[in-house]
Design a binder for these strands. Structure first.
Lengths: 189, 189
DNA sequence: CCAAAGTGGTTGAAAGCTCAATAACTAGGA
DNA sequence: TCCTAGTTATTGAGCTTTCAACCACTTTGG
């Protein structure tokens, strides 16, 4: 079966750049294609499961989780955005939907007039508690049940290293928040 | 820093289900949170890079790659959708944009009157060849440079196992194509 | 006290994706 | 032949996310 990849199979001569790109070797190529396909399918499965059983996309579920873990089940919108790793505008839109569903509320912040505080409602907590077991079961079934305990640790370590590098590497990603400055000198092209 | 997760930190009693969900142990919990965050950030980085340097989202790049690897740089739309792992309607919308950009064309299929064939134009190939080195460099820089060769193999093996399980597990995901039948007996709730 | 700069949050438009419906065609029998 | 069922691709509506612009408020520094 032809597999989806974001990298052409064979190196081609590239006209115009200054530096030659270092292509992926066979192990890396295999790993990359498997990674792309696995994450894509896994994510689709989890979205479908949560949508079917709890009627919400994963992103909203994550917002509810973020709120449920905060002291008093309330959090500054800024901090909630940080905790769930989403942009402020995205959270703003999401909160509108969560509020409409009766799962969360917005209050103004007493200590900072600009601020807003998101609060999880009892119905929101109930929805989260109803959704969680099915979600956990799906994560276990499609991810961890396919792996040995040793592999689970390997995966954790791998992801942590990648994460450290991405965070150290700074600019270029996070939207909405601070503007990206585009560092990184050695981009060929 | 508070980390985003789709699983609440502690098991909570769940009222209403028949079966108790098996929660994640500490290793799994750590691995899962790191996985979520790392894939999210990595993807954002790659999207930003390709958008900035090549003016296209990763999904379109994947379509161009799929076409470039096909014999004659042409492929039935059905097969292209399969190869890139996207739904037919998504591909249809994408083709409209790629055609407008002059990177691909649609022709009717001689052997099947229903069918359509997508063809990569010379401009499309040029755009792909211009975009590829930067993309490969980014993948290497943010993913593989963070890992040892052994870890790259581990990641490949892990993803392959997950992939096998997802494919064996059948229904529940792939949209648009065949309808999902929802198997899996033991869903609590 | 006041202006300038920074931060927090919202909004509307545009892009991309999904879903359901539909049209066009093929294939497989009565 | 005709009729039904399945396949291929497109379309439009709706949802989520991004992006840029914006307002409100706070902080900083004269």
């Amino acid at each position: 079966m032809v597999d989806a990849s974001t990298i052409p199979a064979r190196p081609r001569p590239y006209h115009g750049g200054v530096t030659e790109a270092r292509w992926l070797d066979d192990d890396e190529q295999r790993a990359w294609r498997a990674f792309l396909e696995a994450t894509r399918l896994l994510w689709a499965r989890l979205e479908a499961q949560l949508q079917a059983e709890a009627g919400m996309p994963v992103s909203y579920y994550q917002v509810l989780v973020g709120l449920s873990e905060a002291p008093g089940r309330a959090l500054r919108l800024r901090d909630l955005a940080e905790a769930t790793g989403c942009s402020r505008s995205r959270l703003s839109h999401a909160m509108a939907r969560l509020e409409a569903a009766g799962w969360a509320e917005r209050r103004s912040c007493p200590s900072d007039g600009r601020g807003g505080v998101a609060v999880l409602t009892p119905q929101g907590l109930a929805a989260l508690e109803a959704a969680a077991p099915g979600h956990v079961t799906a994560v276990r079934e499609w991810l961890f049940d396919a792996l040995s305990p040793e592999q689970a640790r390997q995966l954790g370590r791998i992801c942590q290293q990648v994460l450290d590098r991405l965070r150290a590497g700074g600019a270029g990603a996070e939207p909405d928040g601070k503007q990206a400055h585009r560092s990184r000198g050695e981009v060929d092209e």
